[in-house]
Amino acid sequence: MKITAQAAERHVLAITVDNEAGILAKIAGLFTARGYNIDSLTVADISTDHAVSRITIVTNGPPAVIDQIHAQLERLVPVHKVVDLTEAGPHVERELALVKVAGTGEKRVEALRLADIFRAKPVDTTTESFIFEITGAPEKIDSFVGLMRELGLVEVGRTGIVGMMRGAEGA
């Protein structure tokens, strides 16, 4: 009998947790201890009384590994809910980045032209540089950063991915 390895798939997990000290370390430790990689991680307080947070994690793995991650996360006491947005259906993903580009002359003009095409907004400018704010799908940001490399990219800061299910229901 031939055993074939399952292909790794990208998954976006939305985890609702009690907002308590150490929960992020517990979740990150769960991934680390089992050799799972976290590609992106964001955390936001989502309740008016600051008691609940939402953690969004992007990870890769074959379906069996993703199922195991999901089950282990649900066993953690401060975890209320784990939703695999990738499996649950249509969802929206966005990321924010700040991109610093230095240049003069034609490179400066081209950086502004490309920023306009990508709907990146200059949030800081000097005579030698710009800092652009760009939001969108990770692929859009990757493309913008790739083009800015040729025009004098200095620095990039990215927030990580956040995601939500489409429609009226919450994750």
Rank of each mutant, 00 (worst) to 15 (best):
L112E: 03
M164D: 05
L112I: 02
G103Q: 05
H11I: 00
V77W: 05
F132A: 01
I134K: 00
Y36H: 11
E169K: 12
T56P: 02
F118E: 02
A115H: 02
E150P: 00
V83H: 01
T127I: 03
I27Y: 11
S143A: 10
K121N: 15
V156D: 13
H11E: 04
V79A: 06
I55Y: 01
V156W: 15
D116P: 04
E139L: 14
N37V: 02
V52A: 07
H11R: 14
I69M: 14
H91N: 11
T127H: 08
D116T: 15
E87Q: 07
E95F: 07
A25K: 13
V43A: 13
E106N: 06
V12C: 12
M164L: 15
A115Q: 01
H11G: 01
T56W: 02
A111F: 02
E169D: 12
N37D: 09
A51Y: 00
G103H: 05
R34C: 06
R94G: 04
F118C: 02
K26A: 14
L41C: 11
S53I: 03
G152Y: 08
R34T: 07
V99A: 10
K121W: 08
I69A: 02
V145P: 14
L24C: 09
A102D: 06
L41H: 01
D142V: 07
S143K: 04
E74M: 08
E74G: 08
A44C: 08
L114A: 08
G167Q: 08
D18P: 01
A28W: 01
F130V: 05
Q6H: 10
V109F: 10
F31S: 00
A5G: 11
A44P: 13
Q6A: 13
H50S: 11
R108T: 04
I57E: 03
M165V: 09
E139A: 15
A5T: 11
